[in-house]
């Protein structure tokens, strides 16, 4: 680097560190406050405690009863279970559907291809509130009861597009060579798929599935419109809590949720880095 570039490099470095700080400081604050013992004013630090975490899991605490919304952990556990059930089901369906589409789009050319591709991307890029209300109108109009089933269907609409994009990226680096080699060696289409295509796209499919799972667990807006009374998911549950006011155990819930998505995301990113 030339000497003239040095101050610029220094400024960029400072900017970059500040950028990372902006990204992580708010999260770090939530973490810190989740250990705050102060029951009366959650914003004033009084000392370290794990009681908020204990209260979430329904363990004995020394907290006053009224300090916490979570008198019983029932609602929270119920919402968490709903979230996981929805995410698992929606991930399973959308992974299969999105992978099939990625295979089709990567290996075949047809006239309406650009149009179809635009249609595939739409559920991802349009504002989620539009999809949410459209699905609400549709499900109610079709006389379907809002519940876990409708949430799964709604999630599949946009999750399949995410899987499609991730698997397509993997396929783009592959070329048709290996599949042609397999056919050339006498393997039929099914054998080729099982023994060549699948092992090749597997990391992409796994990555797509992880992403779909995280996004499904995270989705608030669409779920908010198409969840029934009995089928609250975790984000909707927390959203409801926050609208009623802030209580300290939200810190702990937020941290657990965060840890959960970070572990899954880190796994996905690590898997991807390892394949290179």
């Amino acid at each position: 680097m030339s000497r003239r570039g040095a101050p610029l490099d220094w400024a960029l470095g400072a900017w970059g560190i500040a950028f990372l700080a902006v990204l992580y400081l708010p999260i770090a604050l939530v973490l810190a406050y989740s250990f705050n013992r102060n029951v009366v004013n959650m914003m004033v630090w009084e000392g370290f405690t794990l009681d908020w975490y204990r209260s979430i899991f329904g363990l004995a605490t020394r907290l006053a009863e009224d300090a916490s919304y979570v008198h019983s952990t029932e609602g929270l556990v119920h919402a968490a279970r709903n979230s996981v059930v929805v995410a698992l089901a929606a991930t399973a369906v959308s992974t299969v559907v999105g992978t099939a589409t990625a295979l089709a789009m990567a290996r075949h050319r047809f006239r309406l291809r650009p149009l179809y591709q635009a249609l595939l991307v739409m559920p991802m890029v349009m504002p989620d509130i539009v999809l949410g209300v459209a699905l609400l109108v549709f499900f109610v109009g079709a006389g379907m009861t809002l519940g876990l089933g409708t949430i799964v269907m709604g999630h599949c609409v946009f999750l399949a597009s995410y899987v499609f994009v991730v698997v397509s990226a993997r396929l783009a680096g592959m070329g048709a060579d290996l599949e042609e080699a397999s056919a050339d060696l006498g393997a039929g289409p099914w054998t080729t798929f099982r023994r060549v295509t699948l092992p090749q796209v597997a990391p992409g499919v796994a990555g797509g599935a992880l992403l779909a799972f995280i996004i499904s667990m995270d989705d608030l807006v669409i779920t908010y419109f198409i969840a029934g009374v009995e089928s609250t998911t975790l984000p909707v549950f927390i959203y409801g809590m926050l609208r009623r006011g802030m209580k300290p155990e939200i810190n702990a819930i937020a941290m657990l949720l965060l840890a959960f998505s970070f572990v899954i995301a880190a796994t996905g990113l690590w898997l991807r880095a390892r394949r290179r």
Partner: peptide
Amino acid sequence: FQSYALFP
């Protein structure tokens, strides 16, 4: 194949 297309 030109690229050999060996299954990695």
